[in-house]
Amino acid sequence: MKKNSIWKDLRKKYPLLLLALPGIILIFLFNYLPLSGLVIAFKNVDYSVGIFKSDWVGFKNFEFFIKSNDAFRITKNTLVLNALFIVFSTVVSVTVAIMLYYVGKNMLKLTQTVLFLPYLISWVVASYALEAFIDPRNGVINHFLTSIGGSNINFYYEPKYWYVILVICNVWKVAGYNSILYYTRLLSIDPTLFEAAEIDGANTWQKIRYITLYMLRPMIVMLVLLSIGNIFYSDFGMYFFLTKDNGMLYPVTDVIDTYIFRALKTINNPGMGAAVGLFQSVMGFILVMTANKLSRKIDEEGSIF
């Protein structure tokens, strides 16, 4: 009975299906079809016979990955760097949003535009800008160091600086538009709340803490949970271009996504790469589901999807 009515409804509203059809097909081709390609995680890929006829190797690809030193390194880098990004970009963007809110409309337009710019610029271009600062010979930092009699630092050979460099670049790129998100949220605060607080004798810090931050809390929680849900994924371009894919820096800058890319393009081991990718997808899926459940618990309206 119920099934019948679905078909009847479909026939009656077939134009809706027609509108949706191109999208359905594309999502099938580029999102669902690759799932069947996941079998290569369990195969020794031989392109000459095609992936379905390649030999099954069971969990060999996973074993190979887990036993290599790489597994720990790339997982650690991915998680640690993403955690640092979440903390720093949240703190900076919330702070900027609150400042914008208190300053009022005067500087808003200019600041917003400028903070937004990095969002429009690809990591390729950003890597050129970074070079201006850290280039071993002509970079601003090294020029300054030599001018005060210090010695040059070749940043592209020194892993120890890169956590800091990457965090700064990430904040520069994403904090701007995050702060605009938070700022827009703040605009919805009822101004009478502040008036009431003032009458009750609250000072500025108390107002920020008990009104502004309180209003932002659901959104902070949601965006942070969303980022935690994506913590196994990295912005590939950032690592690839800023570091110039430099092997000397892998101990701190190699992440799961760059590793999979190399498995495909450089070391040509697609089976192992797909195994790592499957590990990433499964972990990511579990985390997103957990994050969504948590955010629904914290705030009925705040579920991510």
Binding site: P34, G37, I40, Q280
Partner: peptide
């Protein structure tokens, strides 16, 4: 997501 490599193969 299927991930980079399965997508690449498709």
């Amino acid at each position: 997501h299927g991930g980079l490599i399965p997508t690449y193969i498709v």
